[in-house]
Structure formats: structure tokens, C-alpha cells
Nucleic acid binder design. Sequence first.
DNA 1: GCGTGGCGGGAAAGCGCTTTCCAGCGCTCC
DNA 2: GGAGCGCTGGAAAGCGCTTTCCCGCCACGC
Lengths: 338, 338
Amino acid sequence: MSARQVTLAEVAKQAGVSLATASRVLNGSTRQVSGDLSDRVLRTAEELGYVPNASAQALARNSSSLVGLVVHDITDPYFSCIAAGVTRVAEEAGLVVVLGTTGRRPEREAELLSTLRAHRARAVVLAGSRTTDRAAQARLAAEIDAFTEQGGRVACVSQAKLGTDTVVPGNRAGGRALARALAELGHKRFAVLGGPPELVVARDRLAGFKAGLADAGIAPPVVIGGAFTRDGGYEAALELLAAKTRATCVFAVTDVMAMGAMAALRERGVRVPEDMAIAGFDDIPTLRDTVPALSTVRLPLEEMGEIAAGLVLDTGRDEARTVRVAGEVVLRASTGQN
Amino acid sequence: MSARQVTLAEVAKQAGVSLATASRVLNGSTRQVSGDLSDRVLRTAEELGYVPNASAQALARNSSSLVGLVVHDITDPYFSCIAAGVTRVAEEAGLVVVLGTTGRRPEREAELLSTLRAHRARAVVLAGSRTTDRAAQARLAAEIDAFTEQGGRVACVSQAKLGTDTVVPGNRAGGRALARALAELGHKRFAVLGGPPELVVARDRLAGFKAGLADAGIAPPVVIGGAFTRDGGYEAALELLAAKTRATCVFAVTDVMAMGAMAALRERGVRVPEDMAIAGFDDIPTLRDTVPALSTVRLPLEEMGEIAAGLVLDTGRDEARTVRVAGEVVLRASTGQN
DNA sequence: GCGTGGCGGGAAAGCGCTTTCCAGCGCTCC
DNA sequence: GGAGCGCTGGAAAGCGCTTTCCCGCCACGC
């Protein structure tokens, strides 16, 4: 089988030109090639079905056309939206995105970065959330350094790391605005499903929310931890109900968690929003269509992916930049009065 | 900046061995190396922070560690679930997955395959649905041939292509079983939101559904086309309502479409399931938690991704294999009586 | 007329790795 | 005791491409 792949050398020979000329014609260069030869090369390349060997190009140029994308779980709409943004931009730039998933294990992030470095990826977007796990962070920082020293760029979504481009959503501000909006709806007693305490994103949203409550002169919420997933929200909501707090409104730091929480409430016969109002964060598309529609803080997820990819592919500037994107409170049926 | 990357040659020199020996130690080979030298190489590699250059390896070995994955839209839960399965298997095998998105343009599939070929990807999973567009199919078939001739393997999810491994969900059988189950619930008049007529997946599900209705001695359904997306389902549902059929139960050929349809029904004040029952296909995770929960045909999406990746990475067998996975009817609240 | 410079073309030196081939060495086996 | 073998280590030839360097050619200016 395996018809040997057509090489540049074959094209060159067939077209009766040198390797150098063929390369210049087919893969761009500053040098000019006469129209005559150029045509001939183009034609034979076409005829032979020549496709350049990307590995060889990468080796010779010492830079590949790969862009890395690291997420925790591609199944999570938060990440898949960001992924959509990143891939769109990358593909427009003629690059190819390699997808790495961590399964929420922080140490995988560094491993993946190392792999990406081996592949000489020219850039990486890190969409996973930052943890406070010291060892993992140190290892990650070292990998990031190694990666950038090798000439690659790194952008983080929602986790400011020194020396990298960053897209920072207004987690704190969003949480705060949401708290105020909910307070205005008349709620007095709040609970928060706070996710894992070591996740910075979760902490920021929680901190913002608390600040917002304080602004409104409302007592601090009951906070219940849990995993950053639908099931985490489900469990946390059950725990909340078991705790018999008098909260009338619960804030899940993530839409996905809110989804699980709503399922738990429903199972327990707690009506939303009559018995318990609920709000999330992110505004993932699927939850706009649910009943009741979820109140949340909207983040332009796809756009954030696009921005991150844009930052990381913009070879012009060299210093790290930070782009802030604001969250927008969106009140829907899940908090009533709407 | 850019501290030059550590090369094998540097490691070898530092460790006082030849390039060949260093390569054998670090990157596996059939050949043995004495424990003494081996240790020395391993140690210096560690010290220097050596990471093999994947492009160079790919070039020298004429085979890379890339696995392609082509989907229409990574944001669609159907695809993101499959993607999760594929990446899991690939990462376990020490491979890296390259994600390509077509944006539902059939011609992109061939383009991406060509790119993947340039990168010498060792395998590709095509998760996009097959269309009946002749030109696109021909181009795609040619690219698949080129890819396999070059030594790569191709697997398709849910679209049987000659000469490739395939994971085939029971679209027809699932549609049929669903129709029968719905008939048993007492429905007599059905509508189908059939998606784009040129998509084979959509056609199969529809055909199966019709067959199931026929089995139950029920008149053929009203069929309304539309896009294979949430918005497509939304529009199609509006059209259905405008058509003033007397259908009491509507089958959306995709859960995602069903989601849009439910939103449309809700907006128009049509209660589900009291006024109109609805069922989907795929069983995407998010819709298990909605109100009402969606009746559907469950497909093991992640598993399908895993199977596809498994097929394509199993270098043992050479002929194309087909794995069928059955859909399982799951009746939930959206069809009432439950 | 000849030096100059610009320009298009080709030869060849890598890029970092794998792998073949060969050399040397210590064994076993007659 | 020597032929033959198996085993380990190293030299070197690629893998397919980019890019530097050089060469020959032509147009130009003095």
C-alpha cells in the first residue's frame, strides 16, 4: 500500500528546478521566483498532489503551526465555548489547535505544557482555573517559563500568571453586582455553593458576592463547598437543604453547578424561585432555555477564547498584556420577579 | 531570551556517550544499553531539562504522535462528549489530539484532513455527519484515501465510509423503537423536526421513526426540516405551530434541536407535555436536568468517542471494522405519563 | 570597457532525531 | 585454541524541508 508521500524533491525534479526554487515557490519566502518557473512548480505540485511535511517544516524553521489549548473538561460548556473561540481564531490564522484535557487534575496542566513544548507549539492557551496548590503552581510556572524561553507565547484565561498574556473576567465585580441585584429583589438571607476553596476563580466570585451583600447591608451568606461540576452543585444543594438554613436565595459560583443544584432542589420538592431563588455565573448557552431560565452573570465565553487566541498569536508585542472582560448581570426566572 | 532548546546531542556530549546511545536510552528502542550508561544519560537529561523535539522525531520516524479529531462544532454537547472520549483514549496512549472544527461546512472536512495529512497525524476520527453533497463527499473520499495510503487510519463516527473504521449508532433502530414507545403512550398524531434533509444521520433517524409508526399502524408524521442546531429546532417548532397540525407529539431528531423546540413551545404557551409531548435523540447530559426532562434515545456518546479512538489506534488489524452501538429509549417527563 | 550592484537560480549545510551498519569484546562450542 | 555468535557502543546516513551562500547574468554608470 502506502504510496510514499510526495516530497518537495520529487516536485522539484519533475518540474526541472532545484529544491530551493520549489521551496520558495510553494512555501513562501522573501525571494522572488520568475513567473515561468513558478507556474511550472505550482502545476506539478498540483498534479502530484504534493502536501508539505509539516514536521519537516517545523524542524527546519524551528517553529510549528500548532497552538495548544488546555482545558479541564471539554464537555463542560464553559470550556467548550472558550475552545470554540480559540479554534476559530487559530484556524483563521492557518494554525492547528491541539487539545489537552486535564480532567481537573492540576498536575496535568504542567505535563501538557511539557508535551506542547516538545511539539514546539508556537502558543498555548491555558483555560483551566488556577488553584492554590503550591507544588502544582510551581511546576506550572516552571513549565511556562521553559515554554516562553523557547519562544512560545502563553495566555491564560481567568488566571493571572506573571509573564503571560491574560484574559481576566470580572469575577469579583460580577459576583458583587449579582449580589446587589439579588438584594434589590428583596432577598435577605443568602447561601453560596462555593465550589472548591482552592480554586481562585471560585474564591473571587465568592469574595465579590460577599462584598456585594455587605454593600447592601446584608449578613454574610452560608457557604457550602463542593466540586466545580454539575454533581458538585447537586451535592452542595442537598447539603444546603440538610443544613436547614433560612436562606431564600442561593448563588452557585458556576452555571454548571447551578444546574446540578436546581436538579437537587427539584427532587426535594423545593420550588424555584418560589421557595428558593437561584443564580449562577457564566451564562452558558444551554441554561438560557431551561425552566426556570437561570439568572446569572454573563461572560462572553467564545469571545474570551478569541481574545486569548488573539493575544497569543499576535507576535508583535513582547510584553505580557491583560485584557479584562466584564460580566453582566442577567436576571431571569430563576430569581423570580421576571 | 530564548535559551536555545536542549538537544539530544548536548545531553549525549554532557553524558559522554554517543548520540545513538542517548537516543536509545531516552526514546526507547529494541536495543539494550548498559545500566551504567543508561543511568548517566537519564541523569543528565533530567539535569538539563531535555525534552525531545517531537517534529524531529516525527520526521525521523516518519510518523507523529498526533491524532486528529474533526467535529462540526465543539460547543455542541454531542460533539464535545465524543471529543472527551477521544481525548481520553488518545492521552492514555501518550498521543496528542488535534481538534478541527468545520462550522458545519462539509468542504472543511476535506481541508482539515489535508492539514492533518501534512502533519502526518497517525490517525483521524471524523465525527461530523455525512451529507449527501456529492462533490464534498468525493473530495472527502479522495482525502481519506490519500490519508490512509500514507499510512494513517481513519475512523468515522456515525457515517459509514468504505474503507474506514466506523462507529455506527443505531439511528434507524433507535428512531423506530422510540416511535413505538411513543405510540404505546397513546399518541396518534406525530410531527418530526427532521433537520437538514441532506444529513444522513437525520434521514436515518427519521426513516426509523416512520417505520416505527408504521409498525404501530399510525399515519406518517408531518415532517419539518431545519438546521441541525438549537436554533434550527426553535424555528422548526415555530413553523410546526404555524402549520396548525393536530400532532400531539413531536420528535426532534436531535436533543439539541429538541431544546430549541421546547423553548419555542414555551414561548408560544404550549405546555409540554400536556399540550404537546416532545422527544429527542442522543441524550446529551444537560437535558437530563431540565424541566421537563427530555425523553430521548440514549447514545453512549463518550463511549462512542472512546471506541472510535480505540479502533483507529489499534495498529494490529488492517481491515476496516464497524462497531454498532445501540440506542436506548429513555422516557422522561417531556412525553408525560412518567 | 570594465567595475558595480541587483537579481534569479542552485548547491549544500543544517534542523534534531532515528536507525542501519560496523567494530570490538567476551562467550560458547567444537 | 580458534571460529562463530550475541551483545553493546559509536559513526554516519538519512528523514523533508529552509536558508545561506555563492555564482552567473544583466543593466547601468563612469
